[in-house]
Amino acid sequence: MGELNIYGVYVPIFLIQAILAYLLFKIVTLATNQWIAKGWVAIPGIFNLCLYIILLWLMHWFFILCLN
Rank of each mutant, 00 (worst) to 15 (best):
V9P: 02
L51V: 02
T32M: 02
L58Y: 09
L65S: 13
Y22C: 05
L58A: 09
I64P: 02
L65I: 15
Y22N: 06
T32K: 07
I27M: 10
L4N: 05
V28D: 03
Y10D: 14
L56K: 08
H60Y: 11
A21Q: 05
L56P: 07
T32P: 03
P44D: 11
G8T: 14
I64W: 08
M1P: 09
N48Q: 11
F63C: 03
I6R: 10
Q34D: 15
L24G: 06
L23C: 02
L65V: 15
I16D: 02
T29L: 01
I43E: 14
N5L: 13
W57S: 06
L67H: 08
I43R: 12
L49S: 12
V41T: 07
G2M: 03
Q17H: 10
L51H: 10
P44R: 09
L20K: 03
Y7D: 13
C66P: 04
A31N: 04
I36T: 08
L24W: 06
L30F: 03
Y22K: 05
Q17V: 15
I6E: 08
L67E: 09
L30V: 08
P44H: 06
T29P: 00
Q17P: 04
F47A: 06
G45C: 00
C50K: 12
I13A: 01
K38Q: 11
C66N: 14
Y10G: 13
L49N: 09
L51F: 02
L15F: 10
L15D: 13
L49E: 12
L51R: 02
W57I: 13
N5V: 08
C50H: 12
Q34W: 15
I54E: 03
M1S: 11
L51Q: 11
H60M: 03
L24R: 06
F63N: 02
M1A: 05
L58K: 06
I64N: 05
Y52W: 12
I54M: 05
C66F: 15
M59I: 01
K26Q: 04
L15M: 12
L65H: 14
L55N: 11
A37Y: 04
W57E: 01
I27H: 05
N5Y: 06
Q34V: 15
I27W: 08
F25T: 00
K38E: 11
L20P: 00
I36A: 06
A37F: 04
